[in-house]
Amino acid sequence: MIEQLAAVDQSFFTDRSSGNCIQDNKLFCPGWVVDNYDRYVDPTLQHLVLVGSAVAGGFLIAFGLAILAHRHRFLQTPFLAGTGILYTIPSISFFFLLLPITGRGSLTAIIALTAFNLQIIFRNITTGLRNVPPNVTEAARGIGLTRSQILWQVEIPLAMPEIIAGLRIATVSTVALATLAVFANGGGLGTEIVTGSNITFKTGIIVAGSIAVIMAIVFDGVLLLVGKLLAPWKRKQAIS
């Protein structure tokens, strides 16, 4: 997919629109969108792949870390510090720290975006697990549930609103950050913002930026719905 993109870039300056969108370069040229909407399909799909992989990867790793830290409290501080460092290192810098190891490409971008995500998701899962009222877990132990049954059947379901909240923050931030993947040759909507060394075509920037914002809103809405389905008691609470 990314190799194809290089070919598309060559034709950036062949203006296919009926007006003179590129020559005039007004703030927004609707004719460009009408004639060129197809060029945004591949970058959008690449963007979805980048965000999907990074959030899924980040969730799996952070979930594992959070369960470990829940069992062994002393791990909480080092995990928080470690993911904090990964969160603090700017993604664009992370791409190129990985350069000697994974080279340029979407894998490099996915690793960096995953590293960024970890802390947001980890912190929310551990907060959610910690906020489970002790009398609930006591009751669960009282009726004879084992430790892992308590974790999977009591604590994680009760922590679900916090977990989903973390996923929403991580996903929305990743959609915005993934535009930077273009610097690592990782594709995505950034390719329509920085084309070669050209960042002056306003309509292109606005279209690609808007697709990213819409994508973030849609993901946020979907996760909000998923959260309501997984934690129906929250919804009832909100009504009463």
Binding site: T179, L180, T200, I206, G209, D220
Partner: peptide, 19 residues
């Protein structure tokens, strides 16, 4: 706060510079 997170940094800088 929620809306701020959705701003694509690259698009913001690029648009500011271009427009």
């Amino acid at each position: 706060g929620n809306a701020g997170r959705a701003i694509p940094e690259l698009a913001l800088i690029a648009l500011m510079a271009a427009a």
